[in-house]
Amino acid sequence: MKNPATIYLADDDFDDRSMLRDALIARIPGVEIVEAFDGQDLIDKIKPASSPLSMIILTDWNMPRLDGLEVAKIMKSDPGFKNIPIVMVSTNKEQKMIQQAYAAGISKYIVKPVLWTEFLSVAENIRSGFEKLAGR
């Protein structure tokens, strides 16, 4: 598979962010990953980006400054970025909270993995999403 696009990965937990990054690299050869340590850092890095059509955002929910829900609301209210797929990866399993995330505009909600094999499975799902975006 050719380089599909850029993944913006926001998580304030360094270990979780590193595991997800490594799994994505293992399952999506050549992918570009831009890491952010919280929601505000993510927004700052996305705004100057040149091609919103070739992005997917992976964001944790619970982060300082801007959380993942606030990120989704900001992105979906911006006409230039509202079509960027947002995948929320969070430890929160509460159905009411998950519905709130979908109402804010996320494309998919994934309960945060614990095991390496689960991280790889998440990366496979993201790869499939890229292939769908590319019309394959």
Rank of each mutant, 00 (worst) to 15 (best):
M1L: 06
K2C: 09
K2A: 13
N3W: 07
L9E: 01
L9M: 11
D12G: 04
D13M: 12
R17M: 04
R17L: 05
D22G: 11
L24Q: 08
I28S: 06
P29H: 11
I33M: 05
A36F: 11
F37Q: 13
D38M: 10
K45F: 03
P48C: 10
S50V: 08
S54L: 14
M55E: 09
I56Y: 00
I57E: 02
I57D: 03
L58M: 11
N62W: 03
N62V: 12
R65L: 15
D67V: 08
L69A: 11
M75E: 01
K76N: 13
K76Q: 04
S77K: 14
G80R: 02
G80I: 09
G80H: 04
G80Q: 14
N83T: 10
M88W: 10
M88K: 03
S90E: 02
T91M: 05
N92Y: 02
M97H: 11
A101M: 05
Y102A: 10
G105Y: 02
G105H: 00
S107K: 02
K108W: 06
K108S: 07
Y109H: 04
P113M: 02
V114Y: 08
W116T: 15
T117V: 14
E118C: 04
E118T: 08
L120S: 01
L120V: 04
V122G: 07
R127F: 01
F130T: 05
K132A: 14
L133G: 04
A134E: 11
A134T: 11
